[in-house]
């Protein structure tokens, strides 16, 4: 079947199998390999992206279900060369080591900050319930998210769209 999905602001049209999962559409069809696969059971969160502005596990979603929707991946988080505050926070606080879980962590954290701009440590830890990191012990991930919450200018917080970069659709790009 054919799907058309707005990915990081670009409308992407492609032929996929009915059974194609969104994560493989992103990784294999669009070559957006920042979204990772770490498990088979929707448990680890490495594949987290935003679907219409909400964090979802792209391994548990058909590309067909995302047809007509807007998807933001880690590749879409920096805007005009400016890092997203969470990206800065992870770097600033050493919130990553091997980097494999990091995109999913950032996408989950972006969803959290959108709902709860100044989360407590407990709120952050509960929000990360579905994201597994094997390197950091989460300590610096919690700090990275706190950093982003503290170092985000007020106008940016007011603009809820910023957190997901639901930007204007550009021209349609066909992908084989």
């Amino acid at each position: 079947m054919q799907v058309e999905i707005n990915v990081n602001g670009k409308a992407r049209k492609a032929e996929v199998e009915d059974r194609t999962l969104l994560v493989y559409f992103l990784r294999d069809t669009l070559q957006l390999t920042g979204t990772h696969v770490g498990c088979d059971t929707s448990s680890c969160g490495a594949c987290t992206v935003h679907l219409d502005g909400v964090a979802v596990k792209s391994c548990t979603l058909l590309a067909a279900q995302a047809d007509g929707c807007s998807v933001t991946t880690i590749e879409g988080m920096a805007k005009d060369g400016e890092m997203h505050p969470l990206q800065e926070g992870f770097r600033e606080c050493h919130g990553l080591q091997c980097g494999y879980c990091t995109p999913g962590m950032i996408m989950t954290a972006a969803d959290l900050l959108k709902r709860t701009p100044k989360p407590s440590e407990t709120e952050i830890r509960f929000a990360l319930e579905g994201n597994i990191c094997r390197c950091t012990g989460y300590h610096n991930i919690v700090k990275a998210i706190q950093w982003a919450a503290e170092n985000t200018a007020a106008p940016m917080l007011a603009d809820s769209h910023l957190w997901t970069n639901d930007v204007v659709v550009e021209k349609v790009v066909e992908t084989e």
Partner: peptide
Amino acid sequence: ESIKRREDKRFITGKGRYTDDIV
């Protein structure tokens, strides 16, 4: 000194290159 990691930029922007990313 706690120098920030140079490798981070690629990982936080989704540009890390793991084996399964290679085609």
